[in-house]
Design a binder for these strands. Sequence first.
DNA 1: CCCGGGACGGGAAGCGCCTTCCCAATGCTA
DNA 2: TAGCATTGGGAAGGCGCTTCCCGTCCCGGG
Lengths: 345, 345
Amino acid sequence: MNAMSPGPVTLQDVANEAGVSLATASRAFNGSTRKVRQDLQERVLIAAAKLNYAANGPAQAMARGRTNVVGLIVHDIADPYFAAIAAGVMRAAEEAHLLVTLGSTMRRPERELDYLQVLRGQRSRAVILAGSRVDDPELLARLREECEAFERAGGRVVVISQQKLPLDTLVVENRSGAKALAQQLASLGYQRFAVLAGPARLLTARDRVQGIREGLAAVGLPAPVVLHGAFTRDGGHDAMSHLLESRAEVDCVVAVNDVMAVGAMAACRDAGLHLPRDVALAGFDDIATLRDVHPKLTTVRLPLERMGEIALELVTTASAGGAHRTRRIRGEVLIRESTPRHSAR
Amino acid sequence: MNAMSPGPVTLQDVANEAGVSLATASRAFNGSTRKVRQDLQERVLIAAAKLNYAANGPAQAMARGRTNVVGLIVHDIADPYFAAIAAGVMRAAEEAHLLVTLGSTMRRPERELDYLQVLRGQRSRAVILAGSRVDDPELLARLREECEAFERAGGRVVVISQQKLPLDTLVVENRSGAKALAQQLASLGYQRFAVLAGPARLLTARDRVQGIREGLAAVGLPAPVVLHGAFTRDGGHDAMSHLLESRAEVDCVVAVNDVMAVGAMAACRDAGLHLPRDVALAGFDDIATLRDVHPKLTTVRLPLERMGEIALELVTTASAGGAHRTRRIRGEVLIRESTPRHSAR
DNA sequence: CCCGGGACGGGAAGCGCCTTCCCAATGCTA
DNA sequence: TAGCATTGGGAAGGCGCTTCCCGTCCCGGG
């Protein structure tokens, strides 16, 4: 608008336009302890609007020592699990007037360290580690160090998945959810289970397998056949194909997430099997986009968007006395068409 | 590591540790015109690693006048269309050592303006507007102004969708893609079409409807029945339900995106219809997560991840002489099981 | 009528880094 | 040996903002 000074409009420009001092203009925006007379405040805001002023974020960050940015680190933003969590984070961030910087590790756990370091440099207010931890003590140790450095720099860290670090954590109850699922499936009459497990070192996948094992054991059923595969559609497809090739006697297949389950479904169709007649199938997560697949998939619903919101809420609220807060997220078993009542053969 | 100075490690700390001056330490990281002797450079880098130094982003941004951040503004990050684009952006951003700040407008177009303003204040290097433009001249004018302000502040803007602004643009060829789809469907023997359209003001949806109209007209078929609904699963479900209630004579339904198509599929099942026997159905986008729905969905494939990558590449490469670059993204028609060859009744 | 104190505007310091100017030291070439 | 190129270091300037501190003004009570 005003071509007075070159480059972007600064607070000084706004102050000049409003006929007040720089200090007053600043206070008009961030009130805080000091009060500014009503009319001056209004003049400043009008001047800002007129000049289309946008406060310089880096300069504010510099002066305040911190930004309004929180980092969100996921394994793969194209995975609907993480996209849903991200949606929740975004919604809550908008309310809190926070900006979200996204990190997508492409499923390489070491990348979390890099993002953490960069975000520390950026003086991010906080970071949310949204993905599963992995079974790798050395990596965990390095991660702990980075998280500590991050907190020493004044940031806070929230983890969604397993409580492996002394941090605020949303503990996803994968094991008990999977156990409940297995038990309900057993009560439907299924007896010979297979599990399409994810990568062995991924704790979320492992916990779910463990839960299924426990559930079956609890009702006196034999241990399931376990096949590992990537935590993706293709991983599910491959694992299911192997299972079919092995000709194992199985009446119910549980994939450790919905995306794998859909891959498995495709593998079954490729093999000419009819679902759920020839084999029952269940997943985990209750991914919204997959609620309409046919047959409707039995799964364990996780409140993914809500989890994102909760994570951001933990970020914005102070923890009492520096204690690490824990929020348990439990899944809800949803029995649907893909696992009808089964009469033992 | 070193508890020398309080708070985070600064460049001065690194310089001290390495036994060099501040200037040399700075030069070691961002080699400028001046060269730094090999051994000194190494000492600096080693010292930095030892102290776990992370350059203060805001301070750098302040000194340099710009950040390494690009904004990505989408309509809804939970929508797999945008999640896929985001994945492409993230991949390319990692290579370019850029950070991505995510904006999710929750499908409120005005929110783009807010994000743009904030990102301008943040001195973002660039912003990618990933979603469809809307038919709203006043909003478009305000958007143009904000984009100009953004560019005046030294940033650059890339748009993915329609070329409605004088900016670098990935023009998604929705119309010709939809036209080709309609023609291929016609050649399969379908004659009475319905279109499940998105919101009337959303140009992406509108262009696709228009393309279908043109395709049908080109082969001498009557205009389709058009039903509007939200650009979501529920929108598709509702529109399909209305269509079924209307008892219109239709043999092929085209939803303007895959997510709506899946909703429509569910509505058909709810109504006891069998797909594709009772009605054929097609979508648009070829969302990865939905490639395994049954029957496999006929659609128009868009290279979504690649689009994200291209957008980021436009951001990182200078445009010759300030001209606005255009990249045409064309869709590929994929005829699958949901639209088998049809014998006219 | 005077003084104390609250309210509030404004000047200026300082946040951490990059850049650059200038000088000094070194090593090389002519 | 003189002259020059190369490179390290000290120091200053500046980025835009927040905030401390000082000074002014105004009000009410004594």
